[in-house]
Structure formats: C-alpha cells, structure tokens
Design a protein around this nucleic acid. Structure first.
Lengths: 198, 198, 198, 198
DNA sequence: GATGAATGAGTCTTCATTCAT
DNA sequence: CATGAATGAAGACTCATTCAT
C-alpha cells in the first residue's frame, strides 16, 4: 500500500520510517519478550528489545492488553476461522471440536504466561480476556451445538465455561515437563462424550 | 512480659508456650487474611491481623510457602487420609476417585488464589507445591491404580499430571460466576472412563 | 517555494494565507482548550483541537508564553486602552482606577489558570509575565499617579506591585465558590484610600 | 553483640535509632528542602536530604500533605494561639487583626511555594488546605467579629474568604524583589476599614 | 510548510526482607 | 524472642520537544 513508487526508496535507517514498520518491529519484539518473560514483561524491556522508546509503545498500544491482543491477533483469528472448516470437513462434530481445541491448546501452551492472564479480572488484561472470548467462544459454541445436534454430547455444555476450563488447563504447561496440557484437555473433551447420557 | 521470675526457671517451657500460642494466632490470622486477600497477601497485613511483628512471621515461617502449608496442613492431611477410606467404602474405584477429587476441588476453590500458586515455579511457593504433591499425588495414584486394576480406566494415567490438571481447573473459580470448576473437573474425571479403551 | 504548479506563481501569498488561517485556527482552538484545561494544557491537546500538528504550534509560537500572549492579546490591549478612557470620563481618578481594575479582574478570573502563571518565574511563561506587565503596568501607573495627584491616595504606591497583588488575588478564583476575587480586589483598592493618610 | 564491646564502636552510624529522632530529622530535612525546592519537591530528594529511604517517609507521612502539615504544624499552632492574645492586648480589634495577619504573612512568605498549594484542589494537598483553614479561619473569624462588634469594620466579611485572599497575596512573594506581600496585605486589611461604611 | 512519530527523563508508590533495640 | 523501622529495587506512565518525511 505504501510501496510501488517508481523511485528506489531505501528503508531509511531506524528513523520514524513508516510507523507501520515500527509497529511491526514492536510486535515482533513483544512476541519475543513474551516468550521469555511472559506477557507481563516490563514495558521498558519490550521497548528495549524493539529498540524504541517506551513512549512509542504507549502510542501504538495504550494498554498492555492492546499490545498482547495485537501480538496474538493473527493466530487467534486463524484459530477462530478454522473452526467451521474443521466442522465441515469432519464427519463427527465431536472430532472436529477435539481437533479445534487441540489447535487452541497448541497455541496457548507456547505462549508463556498467556493462559494465566486470560482469567477475568487479571488487572489490566480485561480487554485481552474479552477479545479471546468474543472471538473464540462463538466458534466453540458452534462446534458444541453441532455435536449436541448429532447426539454425540449433551446439549447443556456452556462454551464459555469449556473455554475457560481449557485455558486453565494450559496454565504453566510450559516449564513443567511432567505436565502435558494436551493430554488433560483431551481427557476433558473425552469427558464430554461420557457425560452425554447423564 | 516473657519471663519475670527471679526464681525457678522451667526448662524454657513457658517460652515455648508463648511461641506456640503465637504460632496459633498466626495461623488463624493468616487463614483469615488469605480468604479475603489471597495467599499472596502482604506480610504486613498478616502480621497486623495476628497482632505480631513481621519478624515473628519470618521466624516461624521462613518462607511464605511454609506459612501457607501450615495454614492448610490439616485440611490437606484430612484429604489425603480420606482417599483410602473412600476407596474401601466404594464398590467402584473410579467412583471413589471422583468423590475424592470433588473433596479436593471443594477445598481448593474456597481458598482464594491458592490454586494459582500451586504451580511449580510460583516464585517462593515451591515448597507449597512440593507439599501438596508429596501428600496428595500418592493418594491419587492409589485410586488411579485401583481403577485401572478394576479395568475402569486406562493404566497409563499419571497421578501428578492429573492433580496438576485438577488444580489448574480450580484457578480463578471464585470470582467468576460463569465458571464452575467442579463441573469441569467432573468432565475431566469422566474423560478417564472414556479414554479407557483408547 | 514548495509549490509546483506550472502556472502563475503568486508572490507566495497563497501560502501566507494558509499559514494565517492556521494561526487563527490555532488561536481559537487554544483559547477553547485553555478555558477547559487551563493555560498549561498539553501541547498535543491544543494541536488536536486546532486540527494541526504539534510542529505547527511550535513554528508559530516557539514558546508556550507566545501562544498564551497571542490568545489574550486583543483583550489585554483593549484593557490597556480603556484605562485612559476611564480616567478621562471619571471625575475621580480612584474611581477610574477601581473600574479599570474590575475590568482586569473580570478578564483574569474567567481565564482558567492564567493568573497562576502570571507569576514571574513560572517556568516557560516569563514572556507572558513580561507582556502583561509591559502593557498594563504603565496604565495602572497612570491611574495611580492621577489619583495621587488628586490627593485621593498616597503617591508611593507601585503600579507593578499593585498589579501583582491583583493578579494574585485572582488565582484559583474559579473553582472555589466561597472565594470571590472581585470582593477582595475591591477591598485592596479601597485600602488605597485608607492608607493615604498613613 | 552490636553494643559497646571492648572495641571502639562509634554510636552506630545511621541506625534506626529512635524512630522519633528519625522523624525529627525528616521534618528538618523536609523543611530545608521545601525552602529551596518548594513543597512539591520530589520525595526522593527529601529522603536523600534526610539520609533515609523513601519508604521511611511514606511510613511516617503517608501523604505529602501529612508531611507538609507536620513540618509547619508548630508554626501554624503558634499563629492560631496568638490571635486571641493579640485581641486581648490590643485596644483596637482591627489593629489586633492587622498584627495577627502580619504574623501569618511573615510565616507564609518565607515558605517557598506553600501559599501556592494552599489553594483548594491542589492535587494531593487537600488535607493541607483543610488543616490551615480549620486552624486559622476560626481565629480570623473571631478577630473579624470583634472588629465588627467594635464598629471598626463591616460585619459581612467572611473569614474564609479573607484568609484565602491573604494567602493568595503571598504567592510568589519570595523570588520577586519588586513585590512585597506584606504591603499588599496591609492594603487589604486597611480596605476593611474603608469599606466599613459601604 | 506541515505533520506527528519517537524519545526518555522524571516521579510516585509498594513491599519483601533485614536487623537494631 | 519479638518488634516494627528502614531500606531500596522495580515498574508504570506522562509529555515537552525534536526532526525525518
């Protein structure tokens, strides 16, 4: 969008350049810092990693939640979009749900500390919590509904609650080699089938 | 105020009594503060509630984990002890497991913030983590083994992992009316039956 | 100079017009922001209100004092000019002084925070201080001299000092319903008569 | 072990000593810093001047207003108490008022920046404002009433308003050699006599 | 000429932990 | 033994001013 001028415009050192590029650098740096120090890493650290002043971060992302959301937006969107696809491709809605949940878990467990702040009330992260829920709960609800429709599971499972449970199971999954969130989530999803007839 | 008599000095038992009384007051006060402010409540608050100096807390409980463990020791012990009892009383080991787990969950969800610091690596809470695990994982393992023996569940379920999963499901269960940890844990335990034949 | 049209190049008047329009917008916007946020309002806010960049403000008004002076210049000028008029119209120089002072006070108390930065040494407002004084002290001096001449007041009253006192009395006069700067100033001016014979 | 062993141990350098002594040092240091940097001086500066950590300041004086009040309490109290004395000793209530006001002004003008934060609404100084008013307005009211009773002045002068006016006149009185707050206040008080018959 | 992105110093405040008394 | 005063690191946030585009 800002490209294709006939002239040969070099990227202009570290300058303000396109603020867009700066924002990208910020996002990349934040993502990087997040994996090592968690999403609660000091603003100064993130700024340093991105090679910008702290003010720049506040300009682009007024609250920390804004930054976190921005960092993970693509992946969350992708996750949200793949739900219906899986449902369409799979003969069993419950299997589709299972696969979808696995993708979500794979995403979550690799994001140091993310699951922990997904809790409602994580001071300053409400927007983050809200975003994840707004985006993913409906997808989950759709899969759940389909499975219930197919008679695979009970129809009284609340999508929000299930997502919260899954998120919780992912907390601290990294840095504990003895704990495999994926296995636990699998168990949880399997439980849906079992409880069906209850 | 501590001694005073120029005469007979008992073998330092009087002092011990003081110390013990102090420790009891501390435990009670800590328990009380924990329910309102969580287990991460400022040391000063706890000291104030107990009517002692902060130094006294450090003397009796060098690390915060020590204090937390002391506060909940009775309940954890009781929980550990009831495991075998349930197993003996119940015809189905899985049912016993389920009941036992429910007791654990009931304990955990009423302890504001406790589940959250049960994670390994919760700065300063390692001893807490260790205690809970040392005490409860074996019980869980016993129940699990019995259920596996009875053919109710697969025999490859790791007790540590299951306990971690259960603990995780309890995080933030208070202060979120839309989330019922008990339901999720029930699902998880039910999943054990389902996965059996896998 | 930065233009490019192959056609008639006006003597750079078009640009001037732009700049002038900008300056007017700036003045209006600043005045508006000043009443709500005081004369110490963030530069960014003023720029935003004017719909221009911050750089534009700095170009037109290198220091904040320059901007403030520009915003109130018309009113200050009017105030300065009305002094002699009042003196000519009024039989009593002291009465003229009193009326003139009232006009000044009316101006000041409606300018949120202005009186406060009229102090000498209000970091960055020296030019403001200087302007007000340069413009108004002579007028005040003239009125004072006339009153002294008429024997209404002592002749040792310093105009600068009186203006400072009046300005001070106006500080914080808004946002305190229990304080009426006009009354206090009236008292001060009345005092001039009293001290006469001292 | 830390006490007077045979070695030459000086009085234990900066120790905690009596907290009282510490508080005194704090008060002295604060007073000193206030005169050079104003009452809004950075907490760190005050702490440094007192040779204590910042936490110590917060312990003794939770809010800045608390510190400021403590620093000036003695003088304010003395001022409050001398009011009735002056009234008793002086034949003219107005003269007593004048003397009392002079004492107040002498106090205020030597306290760099104090008058400025005496304004209501000086973020974080409300307690300060309240203290000064609570303590001094009644005294002023008493003197005012006596003067009105004696027929020296009108009886509609509000003590709060007058004190505010006096306080305002003292703003910035230091650091401006051309401005003498005492003279202005004298004028103001003189005005009371003049306005009497209005 | 105008724009507005970037910088980064400067402050406040909390709390775990130590240690003089 | 108990007390609680003192320490000081740590981290968030604002905003004036510059300067590349």
């Amino acid at each position: 969008m800002t490209t294709n001028d006939e002239g040969a415009r070099q990227p202009a050192r570290k300058i303000r350049a396109d603020a867009q590029r700066n924002e990208q650098a910020l996002l990349a740096a934040a993502a990087s810092v997040f994996v090592t120090s968690g999403v609660e890493a000091p603003v100064r650290d993130i700024a340093a990693a991105a090679g910008v002043g702290m003010g720049t971060i506040y300009r682009h992302f007024p609250t920390r939640a804004d930054l976190v959301v921005a960092v993970y937006r693509h992946q969350v969107e992708a996750c949200a979009e793949v739900g219906p696809v899986l449902l369409a491709k799979s003969g069993s809605p419950h299997a589709a749900l299972s696969q979808w949940v696995n993708l979500f878990v794979d995403f979550l467990v690799t994001k140091h500390g993310l699951a922990a702040v997904l809790q409602p009330g994580s001071a300053g992260f409400d927007a983050l919590h809200a975003y994840f829920l707004d985006r993913l709960v409906p997808v989950c609800a759709q899969l759940l509904a389909a499975a219930a429709q197919a008679g695979e599971i009970s129809d009284d499972m609340d999508a929000y609650e299930l997502m919260r449970g899954i998120g919780n199971l992912c907390i601290g999954a990294d840095n504990d080699p003895r704990y495999d969130a994926r296995r636990m989530v699998k168990l949880l999803i399997a439980g849906l089938l079992q409880v069906r007839s209850t």
